[in-house]
Simulated assay, not measured.
Amino acid sequence: MLIDSARELKARLSARLAEGFPLATASGLGGRPWTRPAIGLTPVAPGRAHLAIRVAVEDDARVLLTGLDDVVRAEVDVRVTGPILPQARHRASPPPADLQRRTRPLVPGLSVAHAAVSAGTLGGFVRLDGRLAVLSNNHVLAAEGAGAVGDAVLQPGPADGGTAADRVATLAAVAPLTDGPNRVDAAVATLDEGVTAEPGDVPGGPLGAAVPDGLEVEPDEEVEKVGRTTGHTRGRITAVEVDGVAVQYDDGVHVFDDQIEIEGLSGAFSSGGDSGSVIWRSSDRAPLALLFAGSGRGGRTGAGLTFASPLSTVLATLGAEWVAT
């Protein structure tokens, strides 16, 4: 269907969700898994899209699609994801050795974290109030909001052996995780005196200096990232403008709107510890998004889906400027 028609159908189903599924808060879930579907758009041709529906279990899809005629159902892309988790959990699979080590100067893709977090990824570099800073997620640099501005950021993260002696930056700005729909999971930490960085040291060379404002995506647009756990991986964007992405954090579920969905070209695009990675477009190396969560199911290979926030939204929220080189 035309993309405007897909947006109209998305709005209709979102309204139906609001009527049938009262918005829950993180504090009100009592540990129960979130099951409200997420809805976005899957580009299928220039100017055309299917409706993307992402559900935790099959029953949720049946409820949502009841009453839709066959013509509309043919324009709907439904995938079962299972739980969606923040990607800073330390898992058993061994990370690429070079990314988990203590490394100076700092480069994108390295293990990094708040002292109370296991390990996430240094996504890239920004300027905040004129100072060079590292960009990653709230749940990586600020411990899901439990940290405070002024706290230490370590490289490598504690899961990779980082200690107080490995301090490289100071938490400077955090996008809070709220009970209502969130737009980003992001934070920045300004580099400590004497800590050096090479922002352009990315697989394939420096990323573009311009961050696209808004995302016009071609079908199966290919993207890349470098992360602490899975290293340099390639994927394709499978949905955009995804609302209702429910992520199960330690303090409960937080919901995100206007997100980007990605699947790996071969296996998983990301795994635990890759949170905070910056995702770029393969065709022109434009930095597009900040990775923050993923599922263990879904996608053409069944290896799971990755969720990321538009980088332009991240930078605007934090008041930061992208630094490519």
Rank of each mutant, 00 (worst) to 15 (best):
R7H: 15
R7Q: 03
E8Q: 08
L9G: 06
A11F: 10
R12Q: 11
L13R: 01
S14F: 12
A18F: 13
E19G: 10
G20N: 09
G20V: 13
A24I: 12
S27N: 15
G30T: 07
T35L: 09
G40Y: 06
L41P: 04
A45H: 15
R54V: 07
A56M: 13
A74E: 07
D77Q: 13
T81Y: 00
P83M: 11
Q87S: 12
A88I: 14
S93Q: 14
P94N: 08
P94E: 07
D98Y: 08
D98G: 07
L99H: 06
V107W: 00
G109A: 02
A116S: 13
V117Q: 02
S118P: 06
L128P: 13
A133D: 05
A133E: 03
L135W: 01
N138R: 10
L141M: 11
G145T: 10
A146K: 07
A146R: 11
A152L: 07
V153I: 11
G157F: 06
A159F: 12
A159R: 05
D160I: 10
T170C: 08
T170L: 02
A175I: 11
P176A: 02
L177G: 08
G180T: 13
V188I: 14
V188M: 00
V188F: 00
T190K: 05
D192K: 14
E193S: 13
E193M: 14
G194L: 08
G194A: 04
D201I: 11
D201W: 11
V202L: 02
V202E: 03
P206S: 08
L207G: 01
A209P: 06
A209Y: 09
A210V: 04
P212G: 00
D213M: 15
G214V: 10
L215D: 06
E222D: 15
V223F: 03
E224W: 06
V226L: 05
G227D: 03
T229Q: 02
H232F: 11
R236M: 13
A239W: 06
A239K: 04
V240W: 01
E241M: 09
V242R: 01
V242S: 04
D243G: 10
D243V: 12
G244H: 14
V245T: 03
Y249M: 09
G252E: 05
V253M: 04
V253R: 01
D257W: 12
D257P: 04
D258C: 10
Q259K: 05
E263I: 13
G264M: 02
G264F: 01
L265D: 14
S266P: 10
S271V: 13
S275K: 02
G276H: 00
S277M: 08
I279R: 00
W280V: 13
A286V: 11
P287A: 05
L291C: 07
G294V: 07
S295R: 01
G296M: 14
T301D: 11
G304F: 06
P310H: 09
V314E: 02
L318C: 08
L318T: 01
